[in-house]
Design a protein around this nucleic acid. Sequence first.
DNA 1: GGCTTGACAGCAT
DNA 2: CATGCTGCCAAGC
Length: 110
Amino acid sequence: MAESRSSSCAERSLFARIQAVVRRIPRGRVATYGDVARMVGLRNGARTVGWALASLPGARATPWWRVIRSDGTIAPRPGAGEQRRRLVREGVAFHDGTVDLTSHAWRSSR
DNA sequence: GGCTTGACAGCAT
DNA sequence: CATGCTGCCAAGC
């Protein structure tokens, strides 16, 4: 295989791919960084996903707030409070500051 | 070219 | 249950 990881038919930057995946998350559901990473083709690129979301130009229509940690907690970053507020507003149930992934973990059909 | 940083995940202590 | 270290991927300097 000549292709390494990039330079393929759909040469979309990880940036665009990650955004696309995050946009696919239905309202009232959440996904973890590791899950999103796998959806874009990375096995352990959870950090890469964080990098992409952190680099978001302006969020636009990217529901970054639907992306949380694998523990069901929210990253300790400025705006985490708002993130939790948005999730709650969408119908996500929090349990002692933790999202109930058992009920809200979004499973993409790959 | 290589080192550092970053919205992480998983395992060991 | 809390803390620490390592592994992985990409961008910035």
